[in-house]
């Protein structure tokens, strides 16, 4: 990419401001397409720097109960991959600057067709992809075609990714590196900032890319502690739990759901902004 991508511009801005960023995860279409769109449209105003959107899947192997349930709620309300791209397109119509990264599993994309998906995703305004079940060993499947289509491939690095393996994990990664701070599935354990600091320093020795840290960040204080040692903090399950708290017995959103979730996001953003890492 000759000119800077949206993700590269955003992380350059954050660096210029001397602070870490806030990345939020929600599942596209949870609990409904309309409520999800309303929420996503409100995220930049609440202080979110990068939007990560989950592509709902029936069998999310790497996710904990909260995100599994959000995926099933979205699918139950008729969400699919085409509508996920539609949601991005609608968002992009109102916001040209906030990067959107899609996160999910390979099978729905495999079923949609790799070439068609990449063309539609690029046209909709998707900036990056995180596909959990595609390790470097399977780069021919989607990673290399995505790079060719001008979409960043964002890989997860984990505590099990040793120095020997790290170069292949980082090889085709762009935009940022997503460091999974704890072993396990999303939303189950709490993050330890000291361990993260060491891990981020190790990653920085291997890569110039910004490092975003996720898994186990549930409060504004934790988000702040991570933003001090990394380039961005990713909050997922805690937001998804908040969405669930705003639903009625039939999983329909109560009127206060979106404002409540955006209020929580605003608190996370305030935490991150206070934690200047100079």
């Amino acid at each position: 990419m000759s000119t800077k991508s949206r993700l590269e511009r955003r992380f350059a801005d954050l660096k210029a401001q001397g602070r870490g960023g806030l990345v939020t995860f929600t599942t596209a279409g949870d609990p409904t397409f309309e409520a999800s769109l309303e929420l996503v449209l409100g995220l930049p105003g609440a202080g979110v720097d990068v939007i990560e959107l989950g592509m709902p899947f029936s069998d999310p192997m790497a996710d904990g109960p909260a995100i599994q349930a959000s995926s099933l709620r979205a699918l139950g309300a008729g969400m699919n991959l085409a509508r996920t791209l539609d949601l991005v397109r609608r968002f992009r119509g109102t916001d040209e600057d906030t990067p959107i990264v899609l996160m999910g599993y390979y099978n729905p994309i495999h079923s949609y067709g790799v070439e068609a998906f990449l063309a539609d995703a690029k046209a909709a305004g998707v900036d990056g992809l995180i596909v959990v079940d595609l390790p470097p060993e399977e780069d021919d499947e989607l990673c290399l075609p995505a790079l060719k289509a001008g979409i960043h491939w964002i890989r997860l690095a984990t505590p099990t990714t040793d120095d020997k393996r790290l170069p292949s994990v980082l090889a085709n990664t762009g935009g940022f590196v997503y460091y999974v701070s704890i072993m396990g599935i999303t939303g189950t354990r709490e993050v330890q900032a000291d361990a993260v600091r060491v891990a981020v320093e190790r990653l920085k020795r291997h890569s110039e890319l910004p490092i975003a840290v996720g898994f186990g960040i549930k409060t504004p204080e934790q988000a702040a502690s991570i933003a001090r040692v990394a380039d961005a903090a990713v909050v997922g399950s805690a937001i998804v739990e908040r969405i669930k708290g705003g639903l009625d017995d039939g999983d329909r959103p109560r009127p206060a759901m979106v404002p409540d979730v955006l209020g929580f996001v605003r608190a996370l953003a305030a935490g991150v902004r206070k934690a200047r890492n100079g």
Partner: peptide
């Protein structure tokens, strides 16, 4: 070597599991 039987098989797992 990559675990493929023709186009089938492979190693479609999260990075956390790859070293294992």
């Amino acid at each position: 070597e990559g675990g493929h039987f023709g186009q089938f098989g492979g190693r479609f797992v999260a990075e956390t599991l790859m070293p294992l």
